[in-house]
Design a binder for these strands. Structure first.
Lengths: 102, 102
DNA sequence: CAGGCAGTTCGATACTCATCGAACCAGCGC
DNA sequence: GCGCTGGTTCGATGAGTATCGAACTGCCTG
């Protein structure tokens, strides 16, 4: 298992935007933003286990999240500082927006 | 020809992020940001005419750009104010980032 | 050790979408 | 009117990806 996540300098804007440009992942990011680090499975995003895993992987590989393995659990958190360093204001701008404008 | 573009209130974050999450469109947005309103065809983005048209359409329908028809030309501009009103700081954050991190 | 649980991976499916060339449409100039 | 030129639309194609269930892996506990 590679819990690899890209270095801050390697973060690619297009990739990050693509990662954020999905309703499910955006929801995940919001959850992480408000709830802090969370266990992967504790989040209810309305998709199957495998799909959820896929989205977490996408976010991680885009450099949006960090994953910490602890026993059988994976603790996922936002890489706020790294994102802020690489794309100042971007994450805040995304998070400030209302979740779902109906 | 519908030069329809969504109202400010209808702008959807996911849609905008998806629109921005493409290298070609990101390039277009940058060009518009630095050069102001431009004629559609005057922009060199490295894709065919039809593909370029498609990207302009995507950006327009996402609410990122405005299109003004003048004779046979289409003048395209960024909807900076609308985007700023709906997603404060987002566009700036995107534009501030270096174009292509090698 | 056996079982269960967390999470990933696999294989398949369906859908989206970026891309192109060609055909088409609409002004503009001759 | 005839054609050129800017731009859109069409149809096709290929790549990417979101989704699922099922099989697998690893850890922890009884």
């Amino acid at each position: 298992m590679d819990v690899f996540q890209p270095a801050t300098a390697d973060l690619d804007l297009t990739t990050v935007l693509q990662a954020l440009g999905d309703p499910v992942r955006l929801k995940i990011v919001r959850e992480l933003a408000t709830g802090g680090e969370q266990v992967c499975g504790a989040m209810e995003v309305g998709v199957s286990k495998s799909t959820r895993s896929h989205h977490f992987k996408t976010l991680r590989e885009a450099g949006v999240t960090a994953t910490r393995v602890e026993g059988t659990h994976r603790h996922v958190s936002l890489r706020r500082d790294d994102l802020e360093a690489r794309f100042p204001g971007l994450l805040d701008a995304v998070l400030q927006t209302q979740a779902a404008p109906a």
